[in-house]
Every structure is written in C-alpha cells, then in structure tokens.
Design a protein around this nucleic acid. Structure first.
Lengths: 119, 119
DNA sequence: ATGATATGCAAGTATTTGCTTGCAAATTTA
DNA sequence: TAAATTTGCAAGCAAATACTTGCATATCAT
C-alpha cells in the first residue's frame, strides 16, 4: 500500500528526476519518455504514476496518447526546505555558525582551546 | 545491500529531515536526538547512519557520546537541482514556458489555434 | 473492419526500507 | 571496581519499492 507519497519521496529516485528533466520544458507522451530509459515501459509508467500522485506532473490525454506535463511549482516545497538551510551554509550565517561551533573566540590573541579535546 | 545512498534519497525520509532540522544549528548527541522521536534508538541510529553515509552529517566522538553535526553544504546538490527548475516556474521564464506550451501567439489579434487541438 | 500503436492494469518477484529486540563494548561515575 | 550511561552491531520481520511479463482496451491509419 502506497504510504508516503510526497515530493521529497518522488524526487529521491534518479529515474524520476530524469523524467522531470525531460518534461520540464514541454509535455512529452509516455512512450517517448519510456524510450529514453533502459527499463520497461511499465516501470516508467509506475514512475509517472508516482510523480502524478504527488502533483509533480499532470497528464493530458490526447487521443490515444498521454502527454506528461511537469508541474514544477510543486518543487517549491523542496526549494523552501533547502533554502532555510542554504542561509546557514553560505555567507554571514555560515560564519556565525562556524564561530559558534568552533566554541572559541577568534580574537587575534593566543589560542585558548577548551580542555575537551580528546587524545 | 545498500545500493543508492545519495542526498536526495537521504532527505526523502521525514524523520531524517527532522533530524537535520535538529542538528542544523549545533551538534547534538545521539540519545538526545533519539529522545525526540517515537521510534527506538536503534531506528534513529540507522537514520543517522544513512545521513552520515551520504555526507549530510559528521560524527564527533566525545568520550562515550557522539555528537552529530550537520554538513549542510551537502544540500547544495539538491539546491542546485531545484534551482534550475525554479527559474522555470517563476518570473519571466515561466511566462516564456507557458507561452511555448500554450502553442499560441498571445498577440492582441484574433485567436489562431492550430488544428492539433483534439476533441 | 483490421492491424498497428499507445497505454493501463494485474500478478509475481527480488531488493530495499524502516523498525524492533537483545547483546556487547567503551566510558563515567559513585 | 561495580553500576549506570551511551552507543553500535546483528538477526529477524513486515511493508514498500522497482521491475517484469502478459493481457486487455482505446485509437488511428489502411
């Protein structure tokens, strides 16, 4: 039973990320997508289902074909999650973080490390 | 056998994302992390192992304790992957994308749809 | 109509996950 | 030194994944 089905889970699979890359700019039909990979058409179909279920893609039926259109806005959840940390590992925030973790005053005086350093 | 072990895979699990949130600003030892969750300490230990194996966290031994320190820079891979699409779903790029997909000239003249529109 | 094309659904399988419980090892503390 | 604390490792398990192959169903082109 498909339990979790969120965007993070969806993009965890490299094949699914590749699929998103394929349809990011314009809709592509199922078979065309499947032809790009070594796995069976069915396998791709399942990946499309996962992407579809978490809203990352939309399917537009056109006759007997189905065009998969990317819904990139859904990546916003990931974007925001990463962005909150991005501030921490870049720029001033990173300097502050390093300063705190270093647990040492970076003053131009002599070193004053704590005695916690093990062997 | 642990096959894939990349950052995308690592952050796919909500518990692991929560762990990252806990240690993002300062290192925390294993038991303290485990106490925050309903699962067993072992389960958390496994999550920490996954995070560690993909470089998202670093363990600093301190006596019998182990402090987990987040290595947020590793999220850069995710950040960049999402960023490339971020441009597409926001701002001018999005307008361009929509324009292309719409397959129609948005001129103030009369509609001029192609004949491809299926029923 | 017929055959070819584009897909979905179902069943079956091998792997991978996420957890648990039990036990061992290293480190502190009393 | 003995008891308590902090973890890791190993074995076992159920559920979720990622794939396959086979078959059924629309649609399109002849």
């Amino acid at each position: 039973m498909e339990a979790r089905r969120d965007v993070f889970q969806a993009i965890a699979d490299p094949t699914r990320r590749a699929i998103i890359g394929m349809i990011a700019r314009q809709p592509v039909n199922v078979n065309t997508i499947a032809e790009q990979f070594d796995v069976s058409r069915q396998a791709i179909s399942l990946h499309l289902k996962v992407l579809s279920e978490c809203g990352l893609l939309h399917i537009k039926q056109s006759g007997r074909e189905r065009f998969c259109e990317a819904k990139l806005e859904r990546l916003n959840e990931v974007h925001e999650w990463v962005a909150q940390y991005h501030k921490l590992w870049t720029g001033r925030m990173k300097a502050l973080k390093d300063f705190i973790e270093q647990d040492e005053i970076p003053a131009p005086s002599k070193k004053n490390k704590r005695t916690t350093s093990k062997k």
